[in-house]
Each structure stands twice: as structure tokens, then as C-alpha cells.
Design a binder for these strands. Structure first.
Lengths: 337, 337
DNA sequence: CTTGGCACTCGGGAACACGGAGTGCTAGAC
DNA sequence: GTCTAGCACTCCGTGTTCCCGAGTGCCAAG
């Protein structure tokens, strides 16, 4: 059905359309890609490709444009991820290395990715669930209030102000802190609930109300942020592009955490670090856009996802290369800290 | 020069133009605002207003459009800030009250303001310099590394990983923490440098290199974030509006912290909580946009600024009302926590 | 100072023609 | 059987023209 030349034609159409943003005709195609055949032959192949739904024409007697199905085939079989140039790699390295804390890492990553791809970059904050407790801190603010600070091995810091049900002496707080730390230090966050389950019983009865309050906030903190914060950058890159679904919809989606989450997609359990590409109508929302995403994190335990959002008509090989490279570097950085 | 009727005409032009987005003509004006005079009279007044540079016509034989100078006069003398409805106020209150930490307060504030004004909202993080130290925490990560966590009374948490010049025992770290806290607790951040100046001398000689390293990072942390992070929301609201300076420029400015900072402007020292309105060409960058901003913070000490950015053609009274109200509420919230 | 009248101007939309790029088809060449 | 060349056809986009209407500026009269 699809012989080699037809595939070559499809590839050529995708490449030309991506670079020119205009429907591509048989004549220009035949000469620009030295296919060794005449425009007429190309036309026949195009007719076949259109028959099978890989390309379409905006209107009679116009050039052809790839369909979502066409891009899909291109991504799966006709292209290969384009590695970054040495200069780009060095730029990434130095830029990310300058980060001072986790916030800064995420901020720099999203900026970098946006600049590199000239698209909208999206980065999910590293999720808590797979990381481990490095330190729990209780800071007395006054005699009825403490601040809970939770520090993880990924450098994340969570804080909550807790209103205590009764006055608690500072040294009791200090004692509780010591107990908490000895109990939780180095443990995976997902294990915390069971580890603290019997804690109230091991402490003096008069402290229990306060301890219960603190623990409930602690557990809440772990659960609440399960669906993680997502940031984006590079909205300015949308200005030029024209989206099937209006620009407004895209901007709205970017500010809606829930939608973004869906778009980034779940990490496929088997190969979390693989590149995910969702093209046009394959997306749950935002039909007119494509998403290139991947998981990142240190080696075996994936922390979260990052990716790029752009028009269906994007340069997939380059974008995929950039996403993959950035994911790797940021994983390195996080593993080192 | 400008009698009452001319001012009324200018006000009417601004109001009509803001609501219709079309140049407003003498006839429509005369009947819609029952000015008790004929279109011809209005035309004479318009000619005078144009002469003085308050309005202009896009081309001959079109209606009039306010100039920046016209908006300025309108804002200064012809309008009054429109208070929010009771329902809106309650909505603000409940929405902001749900915030769990400082990040969340800022995030909710910027979202709220964007939704309320249907413009782009911009919020600067509370600045460190005026706040006070609530707690300093040193967490040993391994024997050559500690994490410094600085907690302020505004609920802000700063964290840095510090590479020590030599191995330091955990109990030394604990001691240093105790010293730091006893020395800094409750002090204004701007006083920190002098307070820690003689600290190395008061500690055992063998600890000094480590202490010096830690202190230098601490001081750096204070300085570095002096110019504070700024976040925005509501970019989708730009989609409809047409800007003199292209949409792209606006989006780029929004992602450029430095530019945003300039746009929000310095707090005027005498009346920091006053509303600042910058119209069109009065802005340092982004000529085509207007900005309504104000300081916020608990009473006497202003923490930072927040505001709204939109097309010159915006509903100033309503926008100003929303900005002022939100600033007040967020100040309350911050003072309470 | 205000008003009505009048000629003038200009932008924007509708109607129209036309050139160009591209297609589909058919008949001939390898 | 597959490729090629030629040809008629179909639209799109652009440029042109024309006309209508909204709005103005000016002037003379109230």
C-alpha cells in the first residue's frame, strides 16, 4: 500500500509544510527534494496518501497539508530525534547549573525549554510522593501556633502554619520535633502515614491533642500536593502561530493547572522516560495543538513531567531533541543536589 | 478654557469609547448622554478638546478617540474609583482566606485580580528587606553539606544548599543554629549583616571557616532576592484586546521580570498605598498599555506592589476599585498570618 | 453662544475580474 | 504495469472600482 516513495513524499510534505506554513504542491515538492520523479507521479502518490487520510487539501486545487494521522506516521516512522548542537548543550548545562534552589531549577528549566524550542514550555514540579523526608522542622511562632516545615531530598520545602488546640511549651515542641525526625528521616513520603500512625500513643497523654493536630496537617500536606504545581513559559511564542482552536483557549488552558496536567499526561508506567508525543486531536483538550513531553527525574524514580506545547505544525524532530536533552540535564541536576 | 460642558463631553467620549471600542461621533454622544445640547455644539467642543490634545480622530471624518492626555484628565478629575459590590467583596474574602502558605496567597491573589478585572494581573512577592527573621534552620545533609532554611514573619521560606569547606560534626551545626537563632530571632532582615558581623569571633576557631561560608550564603540570600519575583495571570484576557504594540511584545514583557518590575514602578515613598495609574506613553516600556498599581502590606510597612496591566482603553474606575480592594484584603491576610 | 443646514471626506464593504498555482485525467512512452 | 507529458478545470487571493454612510467643518441665522 505505502511503498517507500510514498513515504518519502509524505516526509517531504511534512517537512516543507512545517518550514513554509503553506500547502505544498506537487511541482515544488518534486524539485526541492530531488525525488527523481516528475510532478505528475508525485500527484498520483499524493492522491493515494490523501485516500488513506495522511494528507488533505484545504480546498480543491490547493496544495496538500498533513493530517494528524500524517504527522503521527511521520513521527513514528519517518523522522528521528534530532540531537542538539554542542553549543546548545553547553548552554543548557551552564544555564541550569546556576540554579540556587528547587524553585530556581524549575524556573530556569521552563525558560530554557521555551527559548530552545521557541514554543510554550511546561514543567511540572517534582512530585513529593517518590521523594524522601530529609528533615521535619517545627518552629514555634507563639504559644498557640507553630510552623511546620518539611524538607525533602529533592530540595523541596513545604510549610504550613498550624493553629494548636491548646498552649504547648516550646520544649515539648522540640521534643516532638526530635521524635518526628528520628522516626521519619530518610523515609519515603508515601510511607509517612503508617510511620506516624502510632505516634500519639508513644507520647504523654497531655500532648496528644497537639500532636494529632500537627500530624493531620502533615498528612494533609503530603496528600494535597499530590497533583503538583505546573508552570509554563514562552507564551510570547504563541503570538505568531495561528491555532485551530483560538489563541484564547490555549492561554486559558495554560493557566488551568488541571488541564495542563491532563495535557502533560500520565507517565506510562513501563517506560517513564520515553518521549510522549500527542498530536492534534489525540489531545484530551486543545485539539489544535501538539504536545511533546517526557518524564524526568534521577534514573529509576521519575519525579515529574515536562514538555512543550505548540501548533500541530511544529518541527517534531528538533522539539523532541530539545525536550529529551533538557529532561536529561535537569534530572542530572536534581540527582546531584 | 475647559468649561464644565467640555469636561462632560470628554468624560462621555471616554466612557463611550471604553464600552464600544469605536470612535465616538457627535450625534450619538449628544443623545446617549442627554447633554441638552445639539450635535453641532458638541462638535464645537470636540474641536476645542482636539485642539488641546485630549482627543484625536483616527482619520478625517471619523469619530473621536481619547488620547493618553485625555485619559489622564479623565482619571485625575472626571472619574471616581468604583467600589466593588458586596458579592464581589465576599468572594474575594473567601477566596483569599483559603490560602495555605505564602506561595498560595500570591497565587490566589494574582488569579483573583485577573478574574475580577478581566485583565492581566501582576503581583510582586513580598519583599524580604522589611520583614523580620522568625527562624533560621541548618539541616545537615551529609558531612560536607548543610541546607540553610530561613523563615520570615511573612511566612516566606528561603533555602540554600551550602557546600562546607571541611567536615563539620552535626552537634557543631546544632550549636551554630542555636547561636544564630538567639542572635537573629525577630530582627529585621536589613539588620542581619551587622548582627552577624562579629559572630565568627565568638565561636571556636576551628569552626570559623564553616561559619564564614554559611554566613556568606546567608547574606547573599538576603541580597539576592532584593529585587523580588513577580508573577502574572490572566494572559488569556489579552486575546481579545488589540494592543498598539503587538501582542507579542506584551507577552514578552510579562515574562521578563526586570521589565515587569519597572512597569509596576517604585512605591512612592510618601504615600505607598496610593493607586498609581500609568497611561500609555507614560510607561517606560510598552507604550500601548496602561497600568494600575498600588503597594500592599500590613499598614505602615509596605511589602511589595500589585496591579493590573491592560490596554489604554480600559475601564479605569472599575479597575482601580478592584486593585485597591484586592490590595487591602491581601494586606489583611498577610498581617494576620 | 447655540443651532440647523450643507457640502465634503474618508473608510469599509460588495461586486467583479483576473492571474496563478495546483489538481485530476487521459493518452502515450519505457 | 508504471511513469510522464499535456491539458482543461477549479478555486484562492489580490487588486480595482464603486457606492454608501457616518461624521466632520464651516457658515449663517436665531
Amino acid at each position: 500500500m505505502l511503498d517507500d516513495r510514498k513515504l518519502a513524499v509524505l516526509r517531504a510534505i511534512v517537512e516543507d509544510y512545517v518550514s513554509t506554513n503553506e500547502p505544498v504542491g506537487s511541482k515544488a515538492l518534486a524539485e526541492r527534494h530531488n525525488l527523481k520523479v516528475s510532478p505528475a507521479t508525485v500527484r498520483n502518490d499524493m492522491a493515494a496518501l490523501e485516500e488513506d487520510g495522511y494528507i488533505t487539501q484545504p480546498h480543491t486545487s490547493a496544495g496538500r497539508v498533513p493530517t494528524d494521522k500524517g504527522y503521527r506516521l511521520f513521527v513514528d516512522r519517518l523522522s528521528q530525534v534530532k540531537p542538539l548542537s554542542g553549543a546548545e548543550r553547553r548552554a543548557i548545562e551552564t544555564f541550569l547549573a546556576g540554579a540556587v534552589d528547587l524553585d530556581d531549577v524549575v524556573f530556569r528549566t521552563v525558560r530554557l525549554l521555551a527559548q530552545l524550542t521557541r514554543q510554550v514550555a511546561v514543567v511540572q514540579y517534582p512530585t513529593l510522593t517518590r521523594s524522601t523526608v530529609r528533615h521535619v522542622e517545627l518552629v514555634p511562632l507563639n504559644d498557640r501556633r507553630v510552623m511546620l516545615v518539611l524538607i525533602t531530598n529533592t530540595g523541596r520545602v513545604e510549610q504550613r502554619v498550624i493553629e494548636l488546640p491548646e498552649v504547648v511549651e516550646d520544649d515539648r515542641i522540640a521534643h516532638l520535633r526530635a521524635v518526628l525526625n528520628s522516626c521519619l528521616d530518610g523515609c519515603g513520603l508515601s510511607n509517612v502515614p503508617e510511620l506516624v500512625a502510632d505516634l500519639p500513643e508513644r507520647l504523654p497523654a497531655e500532648d496528644r491533642p497537639a500532636v494529632a493536630t500537627i500530624l493531620s496537617v502533615l498528612l494533609e500536606t503530603l496528600v494535597e500536593r499530590h497533583d503538583e504545581k505546573i508552570v509554563f513559559a514562552g507564551a510570547a511564542n504563541l503570538a505568531g502561530a495561528d491555532f485551530a482552536t483560538g489563541l484564547r483557549d490555549v492561554l486559558e488552558a495554560l493557566e488551568e493547572q488541571v488541564v495542563l496536567m491532563r495535557l502533560l499526561g500520565e507517565t506510562s508506567t513501563d517506560t517513564p522516560s520515553a518521549l510522549t508525543v500527542r498530536i492534534g486531536s489525540e489531545n484530551p483538550y486543545l485539539r489544535g495543538t501538539s504536545i511533546v513531553a517526557t518524564g524526568y527525574g534521577s534514573g529509576d524514580n521519575q519525579l515529574a513531567r515536562l514538555g512543550v506545547l505548540g501548533p500541530t505544525r511544529m518541527d517534531y524532530p528538533v522539539t523532541m531533541g530539545a525536550v529529551r536533552a533538557v529532561a536529561r540535564y535537569v534530572s542530572q541536576i536534581l540527582a546531584a543536589s
